[in-house]
Amino acid sequence: MADAPENPPQGLVASLVALTAPVREAVEEVGTVGDLALRAVVWALRPPYRLQLVVVQFEFVGVQSLFLVGLVGLFTGMVFAVQTVYGFRRFGAENMVGGVVALSLAREMAPVLTAIMVAARAGSGMAAELGNMRASEQIDALETMAVNPVQYLVVPRLLAGLVMVPVLTLVFFLVGLGGAWIIGIKVLSLDPGIFADRIRTLIQPADLMQGLVKSVVFGVAVTLIACRHGFYASGGAVGVGQATTRAVVWSVVGVFVLDYILTSLLTPVG
């Protein structure tokens, strides 16, 4: 009979199934996010273009994250300056601090930490909001009113991630440099002229480009993963909670995996 449940696997098969579950989940994650991305691109190109919704999301992802990203950027720059001075003093290279902090902020810290902050703040909010809309049939209601929910809900959020995460990354970078400046010049009494000069000589356009490329990719990934979990949430309040948790966890994992892939593609070593 069609209703009868399948026989559950036993013994070795059961262990194998359990062991490979996270891998299968990860593959499924990539598949569904890819599918949503494709649909979002197709629907982004079709009219109507709802600018007002995009502005709302720019405000939510960008403006509302500004203070948080600035705060984290400031402390990251300060901590990095202290640690670098501590290490570099051992071989008398503390004058390199400005350049080294700028380099690590531009290539790694700013894009990665900004993306993580956006995932924690905006990503969780998106997953919860879309999850609730799914649970209360609001997404179905959109569909019945001939409004494509991917176009109406996912596209504005995706555009906000695409544009605002790079902007926030730039803010993180500049504020982080400011933090390093405060520690280096005001607290540790380094020479401001040399500090600034090392930044100029060490930082190349390619470093800034790497930061920019990463921030764009992370911005898209974080918002897509958040939207995917909210959009396909099921199971009422519990389901929405799980969707929000998964959105943040998978966004952060995604950022680190993508960071490695992009770094190895964009960094000529050996």
Binding site: S136, Q138, D140, A141, M145, A146
Partner: peptide
């Protein structure tokens, strides 16, 4: 389908109003 749906309407059990 979006074109066809313009001719339909649905009243949802849980209202499904946009909050």
């Amino acid at each position: 389908l979006a074109r066809e749906r313009r001719r339909f309407g649905m009243v949802f059990q849980k209202y499904a109003l946009f909050d």
